[in-house]
Design a protein around this nucleic acid. Structure first.
Length: 288
DNA sequence: ATGACTGGATAGTCCAGA
């Protein structure tokens, strides 16, 4: 099962990148963040294109800001928007959706930015993460938390740790909140696969930051031990950050081998299009 | 150069992102 998460920075603007990416990468389950559309507008924009590709979908959106969604062609059951005791600012925001897909409880998360350490937004971020932790602790297993966590887990996850001192995404309390999540027994599967490599998932649009690979790794997949033991490949799809009209985030893709007790796998057969790469296509980083 | 880019809402520019 191929699981992916992507902060698309407006799904309306990203349609010309999202649909070809679905056709090329053929993920079974996709977590989207920053869709920036209401649920009605999301269904209107993508409903038929997703159905053609065999995806069911569920979104939790609002106009203008935030918005998350799940796409799946391995089932989409027990959809929950938000989570128990999720704080608002002050009203609840569209930052979380979860569902059971192919036997896995999948969460698509867009953690609040935090803006400035010790600001109201920052404390909101920490409270939101704390409530998420409690919700996941009492929720179903196996589980994968996927999305834009807006925290760089370690100094190696930012291009210049010195430049980030005093900024959000790297502060002690944010990293402690992330550790409280992984303390539930969840594994940061991309970092475990690439323990020493420079791996980023976000690059500022400005000043050629992507071209210079000056970014951060803030888009994460956190999976329980049994699921992380199924990881066959885990990587950032940098190709999706290149070219015309990209998001400022790249997708994170995780391939899971079949579950020992029998993951039913895709319920919709893949289209018969050839899987051979284009001539001149560049190889993606693979896990073996 | 407390900037550079992009998106959304708006109708001039401002807020937000990270």
């Amino acid at each position: 099962m191929r699981l992916a998460t992507w902060n698309v920075n407006s799904v309306k603007q990203r349609v010309p990148r999202l649909l070809p990416w679905l056709d090329q990468r053929r993920p079974d389950v996709v977590c989207l963040q920053e869709t920036k559309l209401t649920d009605d507008a999301f269904a209107e924009l993508l409903g038929s294109a997703l159905a053609e590709r065999g995806y069911e979908f569920a979104s939790n959106g609002q106009s203008q800001w935030n918005g998350v969604a799940l796409l799946s062609r391995v089932g989409l059951h027990d959809v929950e928007r938000g989570f128990a005791a999720m704080p608002g600012f002050p009203d609840p925001e569209a930052r979380a959706i979860s569902a059971t897909c192919g036997g896995l409880r999948v969460h698509s998360l867009y953690v609040p930015n935090g803006r400035v350490p010790d600001s109201e937004h920052y404390h909101y971020k920490l409270a939101w993460l704390s409530a998420l932790r409690d919700s996941v602790a009492s929720g179903p297993m196996p589980v994968a938390l996927c999305g834009d966590l807006n925290i760089a887990p370690a100094d190696a996850d930012v291009f210049d740790p010195v430049a980030y001192v005093g900024q959000t995404h790297v502060t002690g309390p944010e990293r402690a909140a992330l550790q409280s999540l992984t303390g539930l027994g969840l594994h940061d599967v991309v970092r475990e696969r690439w323990p020493h490599e420079r791996v980023f998932s976000y690059w500022d649009y400005r000043a050629g930051m992507f071209h210079q690979d000056l970014g951060m790794r803030i888009d994460l997949v956190l999976a329980d031990a049994a699921t992380s033991a199924r990881v066959a490949a885990a990587f950032v799809d940098r190709q999706a950050r290149k070219g015309t009209g990209p998001s400022d985030h790249a997708p994170v893709i995780v391939d899971l081998d079949e579950a020992p007790d029998g993951d039913i796998g895709p319920v919709v057969p893949p289209p018969s299009a050839p899987r051979t790469p284009r001539r001149g296509a560049k190889k993606l980083p693979q896990s073996s």
